[in-house]
């Protein structure tokens, strides 16, 4: 069963710069899908269009048949998602616990329930109780990523989105976070869409991936088949991800 459908999505900015030029893609229910692409190719814009933060110029995005374009469906539409932002996007003015509780409070849970769920999720992502009452600026990037993941999963979304999940982290912390993300997704059994430029992250998180280039999805398939898919850009992307010396100009 298809969960997310991108139908010929176009998006350009005020200076007529065309970012998305007919993106079409289907993501199945409970599938873990990764969209790969070079930096600046429009991956984050695609994600923001999916969330309705940016409006698509033409085409449509459907999640369980609900359209991103229909305002009357927006409340039900947006409730399906949760996202782990590239920069974590934790609220500076709230403690780590407060950040997780805040999301829960919006779905009409009572205070003590919010508190216990928040603590449970924070512990589940491997955070120590001692940091619950600290502010985001007082903890490391890896801890912030965990806290942001706790906030994202606490509201029990149907679709979990990861925007460059290992961006800005050292290789060891990246590995730890990747394991945490994969374990979380496996445990929750929900649809997951990740965007990244890092093929190793894609290979680790999912079997299925797509390549976004020049504003369109140019390839979709099994990640391990990328090496010999016949598309010059995709094969070049694969080689570049494994050794920068093998890139053709």
């Amino acid at each position: 069963m298809t969960k997310i459908v991108f139908e010929n999505v176009h998006k350009k900015f005020h200076n007529n710069f065309r970012v998305l030029n007919g993106v079409s893609l289907k993501v199945a229910d409970k599938e873990v899908h990764v969209i790969l692409g070079r930096s600046g190719c429009g991956k984050s814009v695609l994600l923001k269009c999916l969330l309705g933060i940016l409006q698509v110029d033409s085409g449509d995005i459907l999640v369980d048949g609900l359209s991103v374009k229909k305002k009357e469906q927006h409340r039900d539409y947006i409730r399906k998602f949760s996202i782990l932002f590239q920069g974590n996007a934790l609220f500076d003015s709230m403690t780590i616990r407060g950040n997780v509780e805040f999301g829960l409070q919006q779905i009409n849970r009572n205070k003590s329930e919010c508190r216990s769920i928040a603590e449970e999720k924070l512990l589940a992502v491997g955070l120590d109780r001692r940091i619950f009452d600290l502010y985001p600026a007082e903890i490391s990037g890896g801890m912030q990523k965990r806290a942001a993941l706790a906030r994202a999963i606490a509201i029990e979304p149907e679709v979990l989105l990861f925007d460059e999940p290992t961006s800005g982290l050292d290789p060891i912390t990246s590995g730890v976070i990747c394991h945490l993300l994969r374990d979380t997704v496996t445990k929750l059994q929900i649809t997951c869409l990740t965007i990244t430029h890092d093929l190793k992250v894609a290979e680790f998180l999912s079997d299925h991936s797509s390549i976004l280039n020049d504003g369109a999805i140019i390839w979709t398939g099994k990640t391990k088949e990328m090496k010999r898919c016949g598309d010059e850009f995709v094969e070049n992307f694969y080689r570049a991800s494994h050794s920068i010396l093998e890139v053709s100009a």
Partner: peptide
């Protein structure tokens, strides 16, 4: 700075 650090977008995704 909330806009730049995507905190405003995060509010939208938390249904606020």
């Amino acid at each position: 700075s909330m806009r730049v650090s995507e905190q405003i977008d995060a509010l939208v995704t938390l249904h606020v």
